[in-house]
């Protein structure tokens, strides 16, 4: 099933720095930190299992050379990885960052708060 879930929340996105690029870079940095953390967890899992089973040594890991298939698989995974990290880039382009009612957030508050 090829479904596409919406990537961005509808509603004007607030930016906190004078230049929104700073917020975007920070978002990327946090995403990077997240992906690095994912990797560290995975590494930790591997080391724990390997250690338990006494299967391979550190030297073997250092000496490993990926073959053609492994390279292709890693390329594809890296593309997916970049999509994650650079998620914020197209926030406006997707059209989801815009507000139907008004571009002003105050107008949204007023609208839901208005008398009947």
């Amino acid at each position: 099933m090829a479904v596409e879930l919406p990537k961005h929340a509808k509603g004007e996105r607030p930016y906190f720095f004078d230049d929104p690029a700073v917020d975007k870079l920070l978002a990327m940095l946090l995403a990077m930190a997240g992906e690095l953390s994912v990797l560290r967890d995975r590494h930790d899992t591997l080391e724990r299992i390997i250690e338990k089973k006494g299967l391979i040594t550190r030297q073997e890991i250092e000496a490993y050379e990926p073959d053609k298939d492994a390279i292709a698989e890693r390329d594809a995974k890296r593309e997916e990885y970049l999509n994650q990290i650079l998620r914020i880039v197209d926030v406006e382009i997707s059209g989801m960052g815009k507000n139907d009612l008004s571009n002003e957030w105050q107008a949204v508050i007023d609208r839901v708060s208005e008398e009947a």
Binding site: K7, P14, Y15, L26, L30, Q84, R87
Partner: peptide, 15 residues
Amino acid sequence: LWSSMLRSSQEMMWS
């Protein structure tokens, strides 16, 4: 800085 990170954390949570 805190606000920017908190907003991002919310978006990362959904993602």
